[in-house]
């Protein structure tokens, strides 16, 4: 058998799956987003924006805010693991920070729903400690709950990537800066972070895309309006069987993630140039 033919045969199972379950549905959902009762137009997008423009904005703001906080937390964790001098504190942090990695989003949503509620564990503990009065207790089950859930779940993932990259850096420059009297914060910001920027950005882009497609967290923590695009898609499908608007919302979501991926690619091309 010729090598060319063998190569094609080896790729065939992957190709069939990609065609059937990626290319065809992608094309169909793009077409479906423009289809209105047999004809084509922008009606589904008009409807999506009329009904859900607030939710689209809410999604972008929430996910961007979460991404920014995840970046800061990941740098802080990675930085402490790399530059921390107290070996006991470093090993405690190393042991604890990875836990949320293996907890499903739905479990995170479930746990935080009962933890952050007005009469949940957090407020009851604060009341019993005398930090707040029962009247001052407020529910965090809104945008704050979603951000907390996202940061808690995704920060360990980015921290894992970033701390790996930090660990493989040349210790020479760090030690030199330390000998010259630079503080750890300064070493982190001026020497370590610039060198792991690519890894950090990759982790953040992957987290952004992941968070854009999470349904369980907004559904459990903040089902009321405004909510996230995924909850709207599920609602259009389950309540109305409205494939057109659901596809339009999916395409809008795809364009948002694609623009973030584009930023990454641009950064990558620039750093390789």
């Amino acid at each position: 058998m010729s090598k060319r033919l063998l190569g094609l045969i080896l790729v065939l199972p992957a190709l069939a799956t990609i065609t059937l379950l990626f290319l065809v549905p992608l094309a169909a959902s793009i077409i479906g987003a423009f289809e209105i009762e047999g004809s084509y137009g922008l009606g589904n997008f008009d409807k999506a924006f009329a009904l859900y423009s607030q939710d689209i904005l809410f999604t972008v703001v929430i996910v961007s805010l979460s991404t920014a906080i995840i970046g800061l937390v990941a740098i802080a964790i990675g930085g402490y693991l790399t530059l921390g001098e107290n070996t006991l504190a470093v090993s405690i942090l190393r042991w604890l920070y990875r836990w949320p990695l293996f907890i499903p989003f739905i479990v995170v949503g479930q746990v935080l729903r009962t933890f952050l509620a007005k009469n949940g564990m957090m407020n009851n503990t604060l009341v019993s400690l005398g930090v707040i009065t029962p009247l001052e207790a407020t529910s965090f089950l809104d945008w704050r709950g979603i951000v907390i859930a996202f940061v808690w779940k995704q920060a360990p993932f980015v921290a894992l990537l970033v701390s790996g990259a930090m660990a493989s850096l040349d210790r020479g420059t760090i030690e030199a800066a330390r000998n010259l009297g630079a503080s750890r914060l300064r070493i982190l910001v001026e020497i370590v972070v610039p060198q792991v920027a690519t890894t950090l950005i990759v982790g953040l882009v992957l987290s952004f895309v992941t968070m854009m497609s999470v349904l369980s967290v907004p559904l459990m923590i903040n089902a009321q309006s405004p909510t996230m695009i995924t909850a709207d898609i599920a609602f259009r499908l389950n309540a109305y069987r409205d494939y057109g608007v659901a596809n339009a919302l999916g395409l809008i979501s795809l364009l948002i993630t694609a623009s973030v991926a584009w930023i990454y690619l641009k950064h990558n091309v620039r750093s390789q140039a």
């Binding site: 990626f22 549905p25 992608l26 479906g32 497609s213 596809n247 993630t257």
Partner: peptide
């Protein structure tokens, strides 16, 4: 294949369900 990397499978849920 690389294009597929950028698209979360969740976006294709409606059409995959039909398939």
């Amino acid at each position: 294949v690389l294009m597929q990397l950028m698209v979360m499978p969740d976006i294709l849920i409606v059409e995959n369900y039909r398939t």
